[in-house]
Structures are given as C-alpha cells and as structure tokens.
Design a binder for these strands. Structure first.
Length: 583
RNA sequence: GCCAACGUAGCUCAGGGGUAGAGCAGCUGUUUCGUAAACAGCAGGUCACAGGUUCAAAUCCUGUCGUUGGCUCCA
C-alpha cells in the first residue's frame, strides 16, 4: 500500500469516526431532552458536515439555560459509557414501541413494507435508526451544543415548526478548538464586517437588503465590470442598455406575471400598471425583435448590466449574498439549436479564464435536467441536455447531474463557490431557453429563406455582482489584488517636510493610472503604516530624507516587510505591470 | 413568510426602573518621528420607531421596522 493510500484510508477512518460520534451524540442529546421535556415529540437527528442536530416539538422554545442543562445530562450519559445496541423489529412491533411519538410513526408508516426496521439503544433510551454509532456513549468525544433554530418537519413550510438544536462533536479537544477557531476566522472574513471596515458598502433600513456602495466599493465593482467588458470584447459580445420599468403587458407575455409576480415590484402610474424588471431577458427579446435577423448574424450576444429588483421574502436576505437590488453580468445569446454546444463551450471557457484570475479553485458544477413541469418538446430537451452534457464531458470537469432541477424553460449548468463558512452560493449560470423565443415569436431567416425559431441562452459569468463581490471578499479576506484595490498605493511621508515630495510621487502614480493617496496627517510613520495595513492597501511607499534625496520610494508590501527603496519610475513600471496583468 | 435572538455615539460594546458610559474613529492643538497605535483637549445620543404600565422607562409590557442564526424559498 502506498503512503498516499494509507493517508487516504486514515482520512476515511477519521471521517467515519466523526460521523458515528456525531450520530451518537444526537441520540444522547435527544435522550437528555426527553428527560427534561417528557412530552417532547422527537423527529430526526442526523450528523452533519461539522456536527449534528436533532429536531423536537416542545411546548415552548429552548432557552440557553435549557441547553446548559441538556449538555450537563449528556455529559452524565457519556461518563456512564453506555453501550449502543441495535435490534431489528417487525413493523407492528415498531409502531407499538413508538406509539406516543407521532413523527416516528409517520416515518415508520412511510417506510416500504419490505424494509427492515431497526432500533438503536443505549441503556434504556432507544430511537428508530438505521445505525452507525460508536460502541458506547463514552466514545462520543468532545462535544458542544451551539444553537437553537426553527425547522419545519420534513422541510415543509406547511407542516409543524420544530425546534432544532445544533451541536458539534470532535474526537479531541484540539479538533474542537480548531473547529471553533475556523468559525472565528470565518467571522473575521465575513464580507459584511469587511465591507464596513474597508468602507466598501453599507445597508440602511430606508431600503432594506439593498446595498449602498461607497466610493471604495464602487471602484471594486467597476473594476469587475471593466474586466467582464474586456472579456466580452474578446468573446464577441455587444453591450446594450434597456429600460428599468415595463408595462405589465411585457411581463404577461414573458410569463413573469404568472410565475414571478410575488417577487416583483409593481408600480401604478396614469392608471396603468408597470413592473420593475427582476430580469433582463424580456428586454433582450424586445431588442431582438427590433430588427429582422438573418442566420448569418447568429449568434447574437447581447450583454446587459441593467439593475434588477426582486422582492425577496424577509428572512432570506443576507448581506451582499442575497439582496433585493442587484446587477448581473447578464447576457442573452440568440442562436440556432446547432450552435448551443459551441456557445456554451465558449462561455465556460471564458468563465474559467475569469475564475482563475480570482483564484476560485473550489468551484462546483451542477447540470440541472428537465423538471416535470416544462415547456418544449422532449426532442428539444434531449438535444439541449445532450449539448450541455457533452460540453461538460469533453471539458473534463467534475459535475453532478441534478434531475428535475432545471428551469421550466430549459436545462442549465450552475457554478457554485463557497463563502467563508463553507456555504455555497451560485455565481455563474448558463441556461438554455426554448420558451422565450416562442412567447415573443422570435425568428430568423434561414438559408432556404424560411423563418426559423432561434434558441436563447441566458448566461451570467460572475453572476450577481453584489454576490460575487461578497464571495470574493470572503475568499480574499478583504485583501484585494492590486488591480481591484480601491487604494493601490499609500504614500507615507515620515515628517511634514516630506509631504511635498510625497505629493510629487502621487502625481506620477496618478498620471500612470494608479490609485494613490498621500497620508499627510500628523501621525507617526508607524501609525500611518498600521492604518494602511488595516485598510489592506497593497503597497505603502515610505518617503523620508533618503528617498527624497535619491528620487526613490521605500516600498512596503501589505504581505509584510520592507522591500527596500526603488526609484519612483521603477515602482511605477512595476505596479502598472501588475495592474495590467491582473496578477 | 416561519422559529429564535438582537437593536445604546460613525464602529465595537458596557449599563438594565431614578443625571447616558468606555475604547476606537472624528475634530483641535502640541509633537516631525525610519516600517503595525505619540500626547493632550474637544465634540459626539429622540438608547430603532410607536403605544402602554409607572411618581419616574434606555431599562418592564405590546406592536411595528430592521438585522442576525436557522428553516422554507431562490427562473
């Protein structure tokens, strides 16, 4: 066996141990809850990525004091080191055993009749469970209860709201501490905190869930857009601009009025009803209709950075990650069905080029296939799904197929990237649409002179730019590469007599297109350096007598350390190169 | 939308029926300094908002708004 295999096996053993510990901890927690709340109805309690939870129906919500008591009881059970035992029961026997537990009865009743029913117990407490436990409660390791949250029974918002207790369990105190440290680090990377600290954006209740971008944040956003536009030049897109508000007629035609009205902001003016756009696609269709199109023109790629507004239910918004006012690097490609493959391929190529620049390596791809409720013929779906799948297969990317998850109008590929806490967010997406061309009666003149229906591909590369910026901030912990940094170089005069020289350095940098500022305050150099470090400014240029004398700047990098003095011209050349190459 | 917690100065937070507090940031002055915090002073508040209880409410109660953690949702 190779060393690699040994370590792979060790990883497997450890994750298996954690699974069993956490699953066991959930049982022990449920036992403790039942002791304190004998009337509790217990639902389910699985292990998770970092811990475990268990859902309960109780007469009142759990308090922090309850959690302490539950923890104390759990410690007793763990200290008593009760062995876990499994047994197989008949269906009737199981129903009888859990006769006062309505959720368990529902689970048993829903099991296929030929399924074996197993019960796992430690000491006198038992739970319906397919198994996967440590040998005894003493082997549960180090655990901690974390929080209480509401959760619907069976994830259905029409069913009972249960109380879920989250906990975490690890094989050692060190592993638990490391986990808690990871959580603390994630908090330090939280884009909402960094957004305030770096003066990027803020929120105000006057427009809930809608970010206000300060000058610094606007620079980052505009740099992102500038980069996307650069790629658009290379990949053959044309930018367009479309209105913000449309007569309801448009939304009825596009299907949004029937399918998306709950998420739209509606306006009544002159006794007519208008909708603020939540998506750009219908406007793209109107643009397409403005002219007759020949097959020779296709594919037509219209890029639209229009601002969108969606009413998101309260409780689902989250910093920049889920907002009500947003901009996407959205585009609509009008092409023949034969061109779907190459268009999707070219899009993914562009996306990978861009994501590599941002250092997103943990991307996940999902291919979402036809849902039950859909438009278009089976033959069209066959072709579109096959086209997307072929692109993924030939591209060699890992991806998961998610059946039934496609949009009603066509299949799609989504690109997910995790935030600081490991929660995944969809950024890029590419979606084939058979519906829009039908609804808007889009046509092109084919080679034989006949009128044909084009296909529309909706695609967003960075996706919603607000969300992209949020994920990017967490990914970089706020330390933007030079090209994205709001301030690229901070000039730090050591004493007041160096301000004038510092200003001359600034002018040279600004002339070269560099965002540079002079810190002309009366703080000591050390304090100015500290302030610049905290702002995560990539370069600090210290100027004192020596530099002024020699026409130099003493360069300090954000990453720490004095890089020594170089001539102003050399520094300008170096930083402009770094900006131009987005390195 | 649902369950829960939270909302005090620009930020981070203390205070919890009887005069509104700290640190950082800001402003003013002094200091002019060589690679992560000089010193002093000043200013800063409808304690989210609206009702109620009380002699008295930032504090207790109710409602509203917002935020956070989950759940549900997410073309």
């Amino acid at each position: 066996m190779s060393a690699q295999q040994v370590s792979a096996n060790a990883d497997q053993d450890l994750s298996d141990l954690r699974y069993r510990m956490r699953h066991s901890a959930a049982h022990v927690m449920a036992e403790a809850v039942m002791k304190l709340f004998p009337e509790a109805q217990i639902a389910i309690g699985p292990p998770t990525e970092d811990g475990f939870y268990y859902d309960f129906e109780v007469s009142r919500p759990f308090t922090p004091e309850d959690l302490e008591q539950i923890e104390a009881l759990m410690r007793e059970t763990i200290a008593a080191d009760r062995p876990f035992r499994g047994e197989t029961l008949s269906r009737d026997h199981a129903l009888e055993r859990f006769s006062d537990q309505k959720f368990k009865i529902e689970i048993i009743s829903d099991l296929p009749t030929d399924e074996e029913i197993t019960v796992w117990s430690h000491h006198s407490w038992e739970d319906l469970c397919r198994g996967g436990h440590v040998d005894s409660t003493g082997k549960i390791g180090v655990f901690k209860l974390l929080s209480v949250a509401g959760a619907y029974w069976r994830g259905d918002e029409k069913r009972e709201m249960l109380q879920r207790i989250y906990g975490t369990a690890w094989e050692s105190q060190e592993a638990l501490d490391a986990y808690l440290e990871r959580v603390a680090e994630a908090e330090r990377r939280d884009h909402r905190r960094l957004g305030r600290e770096l003066d990027l954006f803020f929120f105000d209740p006057i427009s809930p869930a809608s970010p206000f971008f300060l000058p610094n944040g606007t620079i980052v956003l505009n740099e992102l857009i500038g980069y996307v536009k650069e790629l658009y030049g290379k990949y053959g897109y044309q930018e367009v601009m479309t209105p913000q508000i449309f007569n309801t007629e448009l939304w009825k035609r596009s299907g949004h009025y029937d399918n998306y009205l709950d998420n739209m902001y509606m306006i009544n003016v002159d006794e007519r009803e208008y909708g603020v756009k939540p998506m750009n696609c219908p406007a793209a269709a109107i643009l397409y209709l403005a002219n007759l199109h020949s097959y020779r023109e296709l594919p037509i790629r219209y890029a639209d950075f229009g601002r969108l507004h969606r009413y998101e239910r309260s409780g689902v918004t989250h910093g920049l990650m889920r907002v009500r006012s947003m901009t996407q690097d959205d585009a609509h490609i009008f092409c023949t069905s034969d061109q779907i493959g190459q268009e999707v391929n070219s899009f993914i190529e562009m996306l990978e080029e861009a994501y590599a620049v941002f250092g997103f390596s943990e991307m996940r791809l999902a291919l979402s296939l036809r849902p039950e409720k859909r438009v278009g013929s089976d033959e069209m779906w066959d072709r579109a799904e096959a086209a997307l799948e072929e692109v993924l297969e030939t591209g060699g990317q890992d991806y998961t197929k998610e059946s039934g998850e496609g949009a009603f109008y066509g299949p799609k590929i989504d690109f997910f990237v995790p935030d600081a806490l490991g929660r995944e967010w969809q950024l890029g997406t590419v979606q084939v649409d058979f519906s829009l061309p039908e609804r808007f009666d889009l046509e092109y003149a084919a080679e034989d002179g006949s009128r044909q229906r084009p296909v529309v591909i909706h695609r967003a590369m960075l996706g919603t730019l607000e969300r992209f910026m949020g994920v990017l901030i967490e990914h970089l912990a706020g330390a933007f590469p030079v090209w994205l940094s709001p301030v690229q170089a901070k000039i730090i005069p050591i004493a007041d007599r160096h301000i004038e020289y510092g200003e001359s350095v600034r002018l040279k940098l600004v002339a070269a297109g560099v965002r540079a500022e002079v810190d002309s305050g009366s703080d000591r150099m050390n304090a100015k350096i500290r302030a610049a470090q905290q702002r995560k400014i990539p370069y600090m240029l210290v100027v004192g007598d020596r530099e002024q004398e020699a026409g130099q700047v003493a360069v300090r990098a954000r990453s720490g350390g004095n890089l020594g003095a170089v001539s102003v011209d050399d520094f300008v050349a170096q930083i402009t190169e770094e900006i131009a190459t987005r390195s």
